[in-house]
Simulated scan of single mutants.
Amino acid sequence: MTARRFIIEADGGSRGNPGPAGYGAVVRDGDTGMIIAEAAEFIGRATNNVAEYKGLIAGLRAAYEIDPSAALDVRMDSKLVVEQMSGRWKIKHPDMQPLAAEARTVFPRSQVTYSWIPRERNKDADRLANEAMDAGQAGRQWEPKGRPAAGAAAVADAAGGVDAAVVVEAESETAAPKAGWSQAADLGIATTFVLLRHGETALTPQKRFSGSGGSDPELSEKGLWQAERAAEAFAARGSVEAVVSSPMRRTRQTAEAVARRLGLEVRIEEGLRELDFGDWEGLTFAEVQQRHPEDLNAWLASSRVKPTGSNESLATLSQRIGVTRDRVLARYAGKTVLLVSHVSPIKTLVRLALGAPPDAVYRMELSAASVCAVQYYSDGNASLRLLNDTSHLR
């Protein structure tokens, strides 16, 4: 079967360079030229080049959500981005390097070609970028025209979360900074993700692979105790405004313990589920090494290799987590949100915040019921504020 073909047109702009910035991207059907997805976002203060790269990433993600096997023709009026992503120009600027690296994780290079087009042939993406900047300077985020904000969540669910900016909800009001994870006033009100790993299950102390394709274990007695200690700590801190959880049983139990104490509801986010470990589910590392030595070595050597019998690699997980992050950021802009998840998703959120390479996930330790915190700012930057904190368990 011939692979489906998409055309991505992306653009970004900054009114001041650096200044108030935004991006726009459209995905077209390669045969008909019809627009099948749009994305746009105001990203705060940034340069033209940063905005252009973010527009590229949004377009790639939107296309991936429609068909990850598609062949892509990316067309941009930025000579810099086209030449750098094509590999003909070196990427020297430190702001560009992590963005280019992120763009390359969405699709294999063999599926993407880059072409320069004059600005007059990139009018749709340019229009969206300007709409996003207009919206941002008016104190709100961009919304797709003709789509009521009240229905945005339903559209996002139906579309599987193509991109946060495609179906962003109206959240224009921002509260004063909360106590707890302090926020720098000169950078505006950040959105804070407090990342809580679930409590122990029977598999945790045995260090067995426990992903989204296994037995879905519940919390052990110790795990339930850990969840209650976390709930006490968050209640004392008083800054969490929403609770979002992976759909797995162990994360829901942990999230529900905290939410009860805080008087909040738990929102389930499918994108926060653990990696599917396939045939490795329930095995220890040593057992996997004995039964699937070549597969394990390949997996450790490349983020694009999947565990034996799995349909998901760490690169695929990274893509899923990136889309999930953007969707949650759009929903809870300016708020402090507790995300209850698993080792691999939390490590990936931390890695992406740091702009670290894929193998950085192997250099992090996350204990059961540990807490991390990441803040996201309007200029597109992120700051890791806490890693593997277990003080509430002592």
Rank of each mutant, 00 (worst) to 15 (best):
A150Q: 10
G271A: 04
A164W: 13
L219C: 02
N130R: 06
A138N: 14
A21Q: 06
N388V: 02
N17P: 03
R261K: 15
Y362D: 12
Y64Q: 12
S239M: 09
F285R: 06
I57N: 15
V361Q: 11
T390K: 10
T254R: 05
F234G: 00
E9Q: 14
V374W: 01
T390E: 03
I268H: 02
A70H: 01
E265W: 14
V305P: 06
V74W: 12
A185Q: 10
T316K: 11
G223H: 03
R325P: 01
E52V: 06
A257H: 09
L264A: 01
N381D: 10
K178L: 03
A227G: 02
S245V: 00
A132M: 14
A129W: 04
K92S: 13
V168N: 10
Y114E: 15
P293L: 12
G22D: 03
A150T: 13
R147H: 08
A230M: 06
Q253C: 09
E269T: 03
G223I: 10
G380T: 04
P148L: 14
A353F: 07
A175V: 04
T105S: 05
R119L: 00
A71H: 12
L393W: 03
T174P: 00
T204P: 13
G19E: 04
S302Y: 13
D276E: 05
A333Y: 08
E365M: 14
V323Q: 04
D359N: 09
H198Y: 13
M85K: 05
A101C: 03
E274S: 07
A46L: 05
H392R: 07
K90A: 10
V374A: 00
R75E: 10
R208W: 05
E143P: 11
A51N: 12
C372W: 09
L349E: 08
I346K: 05
T201H: 07
G19H: 08
